[in-house]
Simulated scan of single mutants.
Amino acid sequence: MYYWKQWKQPRTRRRELLALGIAPGEVHKASRSRKGYWRMSQMSLVRHALHNRWLEEQGVPEMRATWIKLHYGQLARV
């Protein structure tokens, strides 16, 4: 959701989704949508483009691993 909100303009959303390898016909459906940020982040097209591996490459911390370390300590298996 954060990245979708950061790409405020439809032009920016289109450019970023195309750079992530989404087909131009599909990009049009998402980039011009007036739905809210959270709802769009759950759209399959956006979830396919902004997958976990890509988010990890961008430096976004994995919430599951952080939660496990906080609740079970450093010795917990992730």
Rank of each mutant, 00 (worst) to 15 (best):
M1A: 15
Y2I: 10
Y2Q: 13
Y2W: 07
Y3D: 03
K5C: 09
K5R: 13
K5H: 10
W7Q: 05
W7V: 09
K8D: 11
R11P: 01
T12Y: 02
R14G: 08
R15D: 12
L17V: 00
L17G: 00
L18P: 00
A19C: 04
A19F: 05
A23N: 12
A23M: 09
G25N: 13
E26F: 05
E26L: 13
E26Q: 12
E26Y: 02
V27W: 06
V27N: 01
H28Y: 11
H28M: 09
H28E: 15
K29I: 08
K29H: 11
A30M: 12
S31V: 09
R32V: 05
R32P: 01
R32N: 14
S33G: 06
R34D: 08
G36E: 03
G36M: 04
G36F: 05
R39I: 02
S41K: 01
Q42K: 14
M43W: 13
V46N: 05
R47K: 14
H48Y: 00
H48P: 00
L50A: 03
L50G: 01
L50K: 10
H51G: 07
H51A: 09
H51F: 10
N52I: 06
N52G: 05
R53F: 05
L55M: 15
L55I: 08
E56F: 12
E57H: 11
E57Q: 15
E57V: 09
G59S: 09
V60Q: 12
P61N: 10
E62M: 11
R64Y: 14
T66H: 08
K69I: 06
L70H: 12
L70D: 12
L70V: 05
H71D: 05
H71A: 13
Y72T: 02
G73P: 04
L75P: 03
L75N: 14
L75F: 11
L75K: 14
A76N: 10
R77K: 15
